[in-house]
Amino acid sequence: MTMTPVVSVRDLHKTYGKTGQKQYEALKGISFDVETDEFVGIMGASGSGKTTLLNILATLDAPTSGEVEINQQVLANLKGNQIADFRAKQVGFIFQDFNLLENLTNYENIALPLSLQNISRKKAQPEVQRIAKQLNIESLLEKYPTEISGGQKQRVAAARALVSHPAILFGDEPTGALDSNSARDLLEMLNTINHDQQVPILLVTHDPFSASYCQRILFIKDGKIGQEIKKGTHTRQQFYQAILDTLGTFD
């Protein structure tokens, strides 16, 4: 089956530090694709370049060389305001530390990407309600982020990332600050969304349990993709075991 991938990364390099100063090559030629219905995990030791990769994919940072295409859009071709607009429309991003604006209510936080696209309050309202219902946070909408738990915060953050129907959802260790129950809830929910709504997800994680929810896992080592394993027809339990094994041999 051939589909155009949602994300296509070709020979990506990233070197930190200006020429002449101390330089560090964090990404040394990374290539991979993510298909429209995939739930892909990225694992690797601390400092291996996961966040760097995700930041480039989310247009928060520019690569030194190589090409990234998301939803048939070559990122390098985006100029000026297009970059911010692309971020607002095409990508959803959830972070380890939630990144919710504590001076806005949860409702306002979720609606923010829509108002950034100048979508009127009337049109935004049903969208926010829909996603809130899906993530089971309807009762939290009028509260402020400081008034809810970590797991609830991450749901709100996920709702904000998904509300504008992004082409892809990125997560940089979204379960990192959550207890195991909340983490499980979030992953179940991401899984459902990926499955039911065909939203592709790219998830960076340290945690093998979180990774076991993915269909495919890329292992990054020293700025390169070292290994790749697929869930295929295995159960999640079996896949979890396979991840642990790979991590054991990988380091």
Partner: peptide, 15 residues
């Protein structure tokens, strides 16, 4: 921090 977050969500710098 708030402005950093907004930037990540995709608020234009001009905004």
């Amino acid at each position: 921090r708030r402005y950093e977050m907004l930037n990540k969500i995709g608020a234009r710098p001009s905004r």
